Simulated scan of single mutants.
Amino acid sequence: MHSQYKSRQGHTTLGNTKTTVAAPSWISDFKEITKMRLSISVVFSSLVGYLLGVDVIDFKILGLLALGGYFMVGASNGFNQIIEKDLDALMERTKNRPVPSGRMSVNTAFIISSIFTVLGIIILYSINKQTAMFGAISIFLYTCAYTPLKTKTPLAVFVGAIPGAIPFMLGWVAATDDFGIEPGTLFALQFFWQFPHFWAIGWFLYEDYKKAGFFMLPTGKQDKGTAVQTIMYTIWTILISIIPVFGFTGTLQLSIVAAILVFAVGIWMLYYAIRLFKLMSVKAARQLMIVSVSYITLVQIIYVVDKFIR
């Protein structure tokens, strides 16, 4: 869709032939401004959290959570692209986004993001107040803390991991209207997972990020220090992922078989983190990033399947 739009950009209508540029351009720009693929993966996390927390599935709430969650993530991404439009224009990866490329004005992006914020909070509030509160905190931290810190300090990744970890626990809070050890554990799992995930991205996009002055790696460089920290946070992620099997996490439980599967998937990710340490290459970092995405998806699926077959 997006490439089709770019190839047609600038064509004019001839005679009575109507152009079809507007529709695909707006659709592709909408997908870009809300980062649709990322938003859907975040919504998936919140739906998993809901399924883990609920006794009887209410499909109305499930739908509201998906819609409200998408609006919240889309708003965060929209505000982020407005703030970083000049920096995005410097990077190959982001220069064709709607705002830095000039296809969409800052005002239009701001209106879309603002509407998304209001709709997201209203929809999440209709589920319960705590869900709306955590959703609002997520937008605020992503936009007002993580985004400006990216050009200042590698600690930006730490700050960004907080709103990034909220969706998984948000689902539980939507299901139970309660925040306790269970959603706290889900939050911790997704929080620690983000470090190897984002550092892998920061590694293989190092040169591109450098053009915009983004500090994404913990040491600021593609070095052994960054690789060691990636391994350490991967280990923390694995440990947190199997905690529910020991019965410390209230109603969030895991069978021994599921815990073994979760642990095995964690070792798979750890292998690639160690591989990055050994090879110190862009290719190894890219492989770790791909594996990390597969890891969190598989762990969440194992958690849900285990709950419903136990």
Rank of each mutant, 00 (worst) to 15 (best):
A200S: 13
K221A: 08
F192C: 08
L298N: 09
M269F: 07
Y50A: 08
V304K: 12
I139P: 12
V282D: 11
V118F: 03
I309F: 07
L52N: 03
I121E: 03
F215H: 15
M232Q: 14
L62Q: 05
S3E: 15
S126N: 12
F308L: 10
W172I: 14
T94Q: 06
A188P: 12
E84Q: 05
Y295P: 09
L170G: 10
T151I: 05
L155Y: 11
M289C: 14
K152H: 06
F158G: 04
I290C: 02
R8W: 13
T234A: 09
W268L: 08
E92M: 13
L254K: 00
M133T: 15
I201D: 03
K31W: 11
T19I: 02
W193M: 02
I201Q: 06
P183N: 04
V265Q: 11
F59E: 04
A175Y: 02
Q253F: 14
P218N: 04
Y5F: 13
I83K: 14
Q300E: 07
F215S: 15
A161G: 12
R37M: 07
F44H: 01
L119Q: 03
N107V: 14
Y125E: 08
D223V: 00
S25T: 10
P196K: 07
Q130V: 10
N80I: 12
L276P: 07
G120H: 02
P24H: 10
S241E: 01
R275H: 15
F214W: 07
Y272K: 15
K18D: 10
M1A: 13
A188L: 11
Q300R: 13
V56L: 14
I57Y: 07
P244S: 10
D86H: 04
T108L: 13
P218C: 05
F192E: 00
I166E: 00
A109H: 01
S39C: 06
M36T: 09
I201A: 06
M1H: 04
K95A: 10
A156H: 11
K307V: 00
V106E: 10
S46A: 13
R275P: 09
E92D: 12
V305A: 12
I309D: 04
A273S: 12
